[in-house]
């Protein structure tokens, strides 16, 4: 059955994944500390969407729409965005382990965000997201610099990423320990692990715009990413302007990563695991792979969020903890496969 041969099967899979995403989002909105009947959940969502004017308890409606729905949508957009970044980086760097978290880009974005939040870098002229973007670009620059020179091996890029992640995590820890009070450092450390707590509708709007525009631009380059399968020279000999495409796509992934990090913190492994799962299901062609990755990523993240809220009674785990619980073993598995193939 996989990968699907006919276009019909493919559309059926996409349709099923989209429906599943809708169901998961409704499910995520119906689960929480306060028990709210499922019917009320549906009515609240319908009300929020403006398709129903049933009168509801404003508190329940507020919890569903303002709190849980925004959270579920942020989970969906960040899952889609991070998975998208992963698939783009894996194609571009020809590296099965590439993703923003492993490459230290998330760490760079965290450092950028923290330095704006705590130290006031930029004197209020730049926001947290912009700070995260600069941090992410800096991390990319460091990784590309460390990994350039010799022929880019799988391990070299990953080692460069580890170095960058260590460096930026150290800077972040240093900033937090010297500039934050106890309350601030607790909330920042929680956010750094990846947390969906306290997101607002304005965050949803930002994530929606950045991830959607990012997706459209990446999709425009889908076939170009196919051309990278046999390396940069092969791509160039197929008519791709390698430098230009690489610059555009790296900046784009930095932008998506930075936006998501500034909202939900550094959530790891989504960008690693989801593209591999999607490739397994749908095949290696990027025209199909990009939408599949985004859809599966969104589903995965919404489900992870549900797990993070129900796995320990009366407590919410940081979502980064849940994704890492799935992601770390998957990372090991992929690493093992890459090694045996080399």
């Amino acid at each position: 059955m996989f990968p699907p041969k006919s276009a019909l099967t493919l559309w059926a899979i996409f349709l099923a994944a989209s429906l599943l995403l809708g169901v998961n989002i409704v499910l995520a909105a119906s689960i929480g500390e306060m028990r709210i009947p499922f019917v009320i959940t549906l009515q609240s969502i319908a009300h929020g969407l403006g398709v129903s004017d049933v009168s509801l308890d404003p508190i329940q409606q507020g919890i569903i729409w303002q709190y849980r729905m925004s959270r579920a949508l942020i989970a969906a957009f960040s899952g889609a965005g991070l998975a998208l970044c992963g698939v783009v980086l894996q194609a571009l760097l020809r590296n099965a382990l590439a993703e923003p978290y492993v490459l230290g880009v998330s760490a760079g974005a965290s450092t950028g965000a923290v330095s704006v939040m705590l130290v006031g870098v930029g004197g209020g002229a730049i926001g947290v997201s912009a700070g995260a973007f600069l941090g992410a670009l800096m991390a990319f620059a460091i990784v590309m610099f460390l990994a350039s020179g010799v022929r880019r091996g799988v391990t070299r890029v990953i080692l460069a990423g580890v170095a960058a992640a260590q460096l930026f995590n150290a800077i972040t820890a240093w900033l937090v320990s010297t500039s934050a009070n106890a309350e601030q450092s607790r909330s920042i450390m929680f956010w750094l692990l990846g947390s969906l707590g306290g997101v607002r509708w304005s965050d949803v709007e930002l994530a929606a715009v950045v991830v959607s525009v990012g997706f459209v631009l990446c999709f425009y380059f889908a076939r170009t990413m196919d051309a990278f399968a046999f390396g940069e020279d092969a791509a160039a000999s197929l008519g791709v302007s390698v430098r230009g495409v690489r610059a555009v796509l790296l900046i784009l992934t930095a932008l998506i990563t930075a936006t998501l990090v500034s909202i939900v913190g550094a959530v790891g492994f989504v960008g690693l695991v989801i593209p591999h799962a999607a490739r397994f299901l749908i095949g290696p062609g990027h025209v199909r792979l990009l939408p599949a990755t985004a859809l599966i990523g969104a589903n995965f993240m919404v489900l992870s969020d549900i797990v993070s809220r129900v796995i320990v009674a009366q407590q919410t785990l940081p979502i980064g903890v849940v994704t890492a619980l799935f992601g770390a073993p998957a990372f090991a598995l992929i690493l093992y496969r890459v090694r045996t193939e080399e």
């Binding site: 399968a229 046999f230 390396g231 092969a234 197929l238 008519g239 290696p284």
Partner: peptide, 24 residues
């Protein structure tokens, strides 16, 4: 150009590799 030792990790089929030639 047919380069020396070109290889890939991508799980491509023969037909899919040949189709890459249509990209230009």
């Amino acid at each position: 150009l047919v380069a020396q030792h070109s290889t890939t990790d991508a799980d491509l089929r023969v037909e899919e590799v040949v189709r890459l030639g249509r990209i230009p």
